[in-house]
Design a protein around this nucleic acid. Sequence first.
DNA 1: TTCGCTACTCAGCAACGCTAGCTACTGGTA
DNA 2: TACCAGTAGCTAGCGTTGCTGAGTAGCGAA
Lengths: 109, 109
Amino acid sequence: MGKQLTEMLKGTLEGLVLAILSGRPAYGYEITAWLRDQGFSDIAEGTVYALLVRVERRGLVDVEKVPSEKGPPRKVYSLNAQGRAYLEEFWTTWSFLAERLERLREGGK
Amino acid sequence: MGKQLTEMLKGTLEGLVLAILSGRPAYGYEITAWLRDQGFSDIAEGTVYALLVRVERRGLVDVEKVPSEKGPPRKVYSLNAQGRAYLEEFWTTWSFLAERLERLREGGK
DNA sequence: TTCGCTACTCAGCAACGCTAGCTACTGGTA
DNA sequence: TACCAGTAGCTAGCGTTGCTGAGTAGCGAA
């Protein structure tokens, strides 16, 4: 799937991760693993961490440092109120785009 | 919708335009107008033209110069076989992403 | 001749994901 | 003891993409 997916993830990966966090708090390593499990096999580790730093800096998530039994402490992220509002916006934007694309796909057949 | 849509369009605008061309040949100005009509109100002219140059250079479209009654000659683009294959790929990638996002949206409720 | 519409082009910028590294803690193995 | 794999996080530099803002050019109407 490669390059097309890479470009498509720009702008959607953020929503994807926030959507995960809206279900339950999670930490970077875990999120990366989950994404890979879901078929996003070539998601780079660094990408997820950079994204998390970004959303934290924008105040969309709360962070808590939690010690791990195996390895360094985890940074557990959870969606806060601002993040929830932002995610709502994301779904609106996503629906807007998805509707128009789907309409084109139908028409093109 | 602004910034979120801008980022989301990276990777999808290309498919959007190719999908338009799969229905009928069209030229840049026309495509921009159509997009604005569909609600992509802040699509920049330059963006569409740059995209068209890109897909032409990659051999996904054929180009024909057609004189216009009003204004400079039009560059009419039409999707060729390679473009059609690429568009197929695009739909596959899009479905992959859309499915996973939709699943998250359901689960998050 | 000036305005507005049509039609295309281009340089410079910002945002984002990827590449390719690095640090650091734990437990198991040679 | 020394080493390695797995866990966990971080970073600099790069390429791609869309936007900003400006420019060129042709045509018809005021």
